[in-house]
Every structure is written in C-alpha cells, then in structure tokens.
C-alpha cells in the first residue's frame, strides 16, 4: 500500500474520531448517567461534574426502586438471569440442531432440501406478530405458556435459521475432500464430521452463535406475549421502569448497563474464535 500524504491522514483520523464519537457517545453518556442521581441528571444547566453514586445499581440488585416517595418491587436481576437462560439455552439447542443440519444442507442434495432450508430462513422475515396469536392459544392449551421450554422453543425461530445459514456457508467452504481424506484413512463419517468438519467451521459456528445470542437477547415481543414476569427477559422487564412513578433515568441507565454486560463479555470471549476464523480463512487458499 502506498503511503498517503499527511493532510489526508489527518483528515482520515478526524473522520474516524467523528464516527467513533457519534457511535460511542450515547454509550458513554448512559454509563455516566448510571452513576448519577436523578437530581444530577436533570440539573439545568447540565454539568459534567458530579459525585458518582452506586445507588442505582444497589436499587436494581436489591430489586427495590425508590421513586418519588414510593417503593416499587422489581425483579430486574431475575430478568437478566431469565434473559441469560433463554438466550443461552436457545443458542445451545440451535447449535445442536442447526450445525448437523447445516452440514447436511452443505454436503448432500436431498429431496426438498433447498425448500426446507428456505422455509427455515423465511422465519427470519415473517413478522412475529403473525404467528404469535395462534401460538399463544396453542401454548396455553399445551401448558407451555409462561415456561422456559415454551420460550426456548419459539426462540428457535430466531436462532435456528441464523445458525443454519451462516454455518452452512462455512461448511461449503471446507473442501469435502479433506473429510474424504480422513475417512479413507479409516474413520467413520461421524468422526470426520466431529474431528474435521466442525473444527474447520468453528469460527463460523462461533460467529453464528454470538449473533444468534444477541438476537435472542434483544428479543422482546415473544416473551412479552408468551410469558409472565417469571420467565421474562430484561427487554420486557425494563418496561417496569416506565410504569414506576416518574422516570428514573439513573436507574434505567444502570439497568441498561447491567443488561449489556453479559453480551459484551460473551463477545469478548468469542473474539478469539472469530479472529482465529479470519486468520484461518486468509491462509486457507
């Protein structure tokens, strides 16, 4: 690459800073707000100087929101736990079902194969409300309403197609002859799948799992309709802030920060695999 002149480099740096600020500023603002009292936040004129407080976090973790004079019991930590259980279990189930299915779609042609794959994908662009009402009726009938299992089941509509389609692409990139070479050396089909195909597609699987986790985490409408507060995730639980007397900006900010942490940590952990995927892809030839 040729070296660019310094005005151009400065211009690029400025642009990058501007873009970063634009995207990072709201996050920073929310982070700051979460350490402020409502009074600090609403002060006119606003001031960047304040005494940080952990009161918002304490209230959330204790499950007691103190608004203007009244106290509201909320189960925010429980919501976070629910989010985690729902998203993690959904992704695990989807991996269990989706990775072998993706392999099958990538390697074998079978009757109606493409149609099945496409139908699964079409769940992604069907409006969820279209299926929710009938689902609600079924769920109440089957006793799945307000259960983890019921929600994990519908979450498959979100996570399974994602995993299936992303991982399928990765399997297609792995030459079948690499597995053939392994199988002709005396290994069974299953071993070649587990020892060759899956490890070679691991970066893709990691990326798909992370993405699916985020999608599941951010889902709102399924849990809103198909569950009560016992199983509801943070996205739904956060509604409680609005119905509380007055809007507690500090507590909302703290709630947001808490709800982002699990996904953030997961992304950091997965990063290793994602990068491995990029570097492996670059030299795969």
């Amino acid at each position: 690459m040729q070296r660019s002149s310094w005005p151009w480099r400065i211009f690029k740096a400025l642009c990058l800073t501007a873009i970063s600020l634009f995207f990072l500023f709201p996050i920073l603002w929310v982070l700051l707000m979460s350490f402020q009292t409502n009074a600090d936040i609403l002060r006119v004129p606003p001031s960047p100087f304040f005494t940080p407080t952990l009161a918002n976090y304490k209230a959330l973790i204790a499950g007691e929101l103190t608004g203007a004079g009244s106290t509201l019991q909320i189960a925010y930590m429980k919501n976070i736990l629910n989010s985690f259980v729902l998203s993690a279990c959904s992704v695990l189930l989807s991996l269990l079902l989706g990775v072998p299915a993706a392999y099958a779609f990538a390697r074998y042609r079978f009757r109606l194969g493409e149609n099945i794959a496409f139908t699964l994908l079409s769940f992604r662009f069907a409006p969820p409300l279209l299926v929710l009402l009938p689902l609600l009726l079924y769920f109440q009938e089957l006793g799945l309403y307000d259960t983890y299992i019921g929600l994990i089941w519908v979450y498959q509509l979100i996570t399974l197609p994602l995993i299936l389609w992303i991982v399928r692409g990765y399997f297609e990139d792995v030459s079948p002859d690499i597995e053939h070479a392994y199988r002709i050396d005396g290994h069974s089909w299953l071993r070649s799948f587990l020892k060759i195909a899956v490890p070679l597609a691991r970066p893709g699987i990691a990326a798909a799992a992370l993405l699916a986790f985020i999608f599941a985490w951010n889902n709102f409408v399924f849990a809103l309709i198909l569950g009560s507060s016992d199983v509801q995730p943070v996205t739904v639980g956060a509604l409680a802030f609005i119905t509380a007397s007055g809007i507690q900006y500090g507590q909302i900010a703290a709630g947001l920060v808490l709800s982002v942490i699990p996904t953030f940590v997961l992304a950091l952990v997965m990063q290793r695999y994602l990068v491995e995927g990029l570097s492996l892809g670059a030299v795969k030839g």
Partner: peptide, 15 residues
C-alpha cells in the same frame, strides 16, 4: 475399503 488416495486438490488437514 483399505484404499489410500492422493487427491487432485491435495486436501491436507489445515490445522
């Protein structure tokens, strides 16, 4: 089948 093969596209295990 007890057969060994060298593939047209080499197909070595990348890892």
């Amino acid at each position: 089948r007890n057969v060994a093969m060298a593939f047209e596209g080499y197909s070595l295990y990348p890892p």
